[in-house]
């Protein structure tokens, strides 16, 4: 059950990466090739094996104190906005969201 170009188009839409038809074709071929490379994962019997999401041994409960700007990291407005492609006044600016779905949560 290889990925079809429609599948890949759907993933590209989700991942917000515009692909040309040609790129879509290449991408589809690549992804199916890559997924073949992953098959060993599916041949395991992993019954009762715990996953390792973090390779950090027993490290847990890492937390920080509730102290304002303890690390002096808060940024001046001009620095905060310095790398933005579009800004207005003190804010970042984006074009119309009309037709965007993410808006509603």
């Amino acid at each position: 059950m290889a990925l079809t170009q429609d599948d890949v188009r759907g993933i590209a839409d989700y991942a917000r990466i515009a692909l040309t038809e040609e790129e879509l074709e290449e991408m589809c071929a690549y992804m199916n090739e890559a997924i073949d490379l992953l098959q060993p994962i599916r041949e395991y019997d992993l019954e009762g094996v715990e996953p390792t999401f973090h390779p950090i041994g027993d490290l847990s409960n890492v937390m920080a104190g509730d102290v304002q700007n303890a690390h002096g990291r808060s940024l001046d407005l001009d620095v905060a906005l310095s790398n933005a492609g579009a800004k207005q006044g003190r804010s970042f600016r984006v074009p119309s969201i009309l037709g965007e779905e993410g808006g509603d949560r």
């Binding site: 917000r16 990466i17 515009a18 692909l19 984006v94 119309s96 969201i97 009309l98 037709g99 965007e100």
Partner: peptide, 13 residues
Amino acid sequence: CATLAEQTALSRA
């Protein structure tokens, strides 16, 4: 870009 969706997808592309 006219919309955010378009800007995001093309900026990343």
